[in-house]
Write a protein that binds this DNA or RNA. Structure first.
Lengths: 223, 223
DNA sequence: CCGATATAGTTAACACCGTTACGCAGCACA
DNA sequence: TGTGCTGCGTAACGGTGTTAACTATATCGG
């Protein structure tokens, strides 16, 4: 629907020079975006290659053949770049959690599927998980509520699922929020411990996940 | 028992000069130990004051009035110093867990007391907990088995407590080790999440701990 | 078409960091 | 009384994130 509040109601056919100008702006915009994307992609690669501790802007710059200061043309500082990478991880994370609840309608099964998907993501993308939930704990402190909400979109999925469990009547009434948080903490504990302790093998993690979901299944239902 | 393999069997009454020499050696030994202790204590203080990320040898040196390189006379490198501080934290940690199981003999109550003591330690000493279990994940990888065993002495207490729960007959038979590990992970999840997420207040953590122990209590017992 | 301006990239530098090589002073000892 | 050891300091290396100043290029107004 055309916007009649604008002054020129008859669309002004753009002149050729205007078209050229717009095209030029577009092209430069795109070129600029291209380098930003190059930096971004290289940063994500460098991160998974060497881990967060060994990630440095100078290494990144060397890898893409630019000087380190060039990065500052496209990202305010190292944090913004890292957070951009982390944002992508959060998007993928959210997708996988949302995908996990499809396929079943029973809320308890969905809850278990969520837990297993959470653990799976952590071990499929250990470096991303570390940065998201372990190594950059400080970023959470300076996040606005909306950003937090954005990152933890899947948290609301968890709360909703818990709520459906409560509504099903098979579970004693409780505040879904606090319960969801507890389940999240349990899963986070399994992942972070599994990623940290070298003596914990995949089989151990599997067992922990099984134990945890068994405890959850029996511990949440009405007696 | 005197060592008769040595040449002088009749204890040679130490001459005065020998006494002086020994005293001098002792004094220097003690002075050396004193500076090491000074460094160590200042390091622990600096750590809790500014957190691990802001901890630097140069700041530490400035604080005690020595040059940064002096630290290397008493500790191999930064890691050894940090690990020494962490060792002390682990000792305190172990004490508090062992203290928690006193007072009751019921293994289930002991289990719950262990969990609450664990969470309490984490929030009483957040910076120590972070370094021990979150920020220096890498140190676990190069620990020998004996060092690991040393640090995780309280883990064995947990396993033993779980075993007593199983032996009591009120709980289905299971491998205590895996179960203990799961419970540890749950507690670790609560602490690390509580320390990380700024929107989690002490009351939330309290609720999570309560939820968790309720789930444990009902989820572990025989149906 | 030409000069002003903006922009993307560069190099140099700053202030840190952990760590090492080397020099110096004082002490123990012959 | 000289000599070697040893605790400590200074200087330096290579690394980090970040900023300032510069250059070349491309765009835009007249």
């Amino acid at each position: 629907m055309p916007d009649f509040t604008k002054k020129k109601v008859h669309l002004p056919k753009p002149t050729l020079t205007e078209q050229v100008r717009q095209a030029s702006v577009d092209r430069r915009e795109q070129e600029k975006g291209a380098l930003r994307a190059t930096i971004f992609r290289a940063a994500a690669d460098l991160l998974v290659d060497h881990g967060y501790a060994a990630f440095s802007l100078r290494k990144l710059a060397a890898r893409i053949g630019y000087s380190a200061t060039t990065i500052y043309r496209h990202f305010r500082d190292k944090d913004e770049l890292i957070l951009a990478v982390v944002d992508e991880s959060f998007a993928k994370f959210g997708q996988q959690l949302h995908a996990a609840v499809y396929g079943t309608s029973d809320p308890f099964e969905q809850l278990e599927a969520l837990g297993r998907a959470y653990v799976k993501f952590g071990f499929d993308h250990p470096i991303h998980y570390r940065v998201m939930f372990m190594e950059r704990c400080d970023v959470w402190e300076k996040l606005s509520d909306s950003e937090m909400h954005d990152k933890l979109g899947s948290y609301e999925l968890l709360v909703a699922t818990v709520q459906r469990c409560i509504d099903s009547g098979r579970m004693p009434a409780a505040e879904a929020e606090g319960l969801a948080c507890t389940l999240w903490a349990h899963m986070h504990g399994i992942v972070s411990l599994g990623l940290t302790m070298p003596f914990l093998e995949p089989a151990d993690v599997q067992r922990m996940t099984d134990h945890s979901s068994a405890m959850m299944r029996q511990g949440l239902l009405k007696p």
